[in-house]
């Protein structure tokens, strides 16, 4: 899968600031609004929080994949953010999360939505890849690491 097709260079951030789970979700959605990718902030945030309420998307080794389905988006919107200090995200292994991959997809529209999440998480399932990602200093560097493969 060509990640470049889905992930835009201006939806990749090396410097997330929030230090709570809700804060991270809000900050990522706000940044997507600021980048002009989405507009309906509240509905989208609700969709993501709904999904988190069913089961946390905090996985293992510091990776979280918050996502939601809403018709407020017309196509798959993806974003990747780092918060290097780590945030408590109710993850499966209890470790704080540092890498956040967010996707928003329309409810009925078909497309490789989960596959995108799966591909990115497969990419960063290698410890060496995660370290490289966390060592990145600029947005462009992360983008290159994720899409340059």
């Amino acid at each position: 899968m060509n990640l470049k097709k889905v992930l835009a260079a201006d939806a990749v951030w090396v410097d997330l600031k929030a230090n709570t789970k809700a804060g991270i979700l809000e900050e990522m959605v706000d940044r997507l609004v600021a980048a002009g990718k989405i507009s309906d902030r509240e509905t989208i945030l609700e969709a993501i929080k709904d999904r988190e309420a069913k089961m946390s998307t905090g996985m293992q080794n510091g990776v979280a994949i918050p996502h939601g389905k809403t018709d407020s988006v017309k196509q798959l919107i993806a974003a990747v953010g780092l918060q290097k200090e780590g945030v408590d995200f109710d993850s499966m292994d209890g470790l704080p999360c540092t890498i956040f991959i967010m996707t928003l997809s329309p409810i009925k529209r078909a497309g490789p939505h989960m596959q995108f999440l799966a591909e990115v998480s497969r990419l960063i399932s290698q410890p060496a890849e995660r370290e490289k990602l966390l060592a990145a200093k600029t947005h462009a560097e992360i983008y290159e690491l994720l899409t340059g493969k």
């Binding site: 999904r51 069913k54 089961m55 994949i65 989960m114 596959q115 999440l117 799966a118 591909e119 998480s121 497969r122 399932s125």
Partner: peptide
């Protein structure tokens, strides 16, 4: 093994939807 992520993630969403 290389493709298990995608299968697991899609199935997880359906399990959650089912419990809903």
């Amino acid at each position: 093994s290389a493709n298990q992520n995608v299968a697991r993630m899609i199935l997880l969403e359906e399990v959650l939807a089912l419990s809903d």
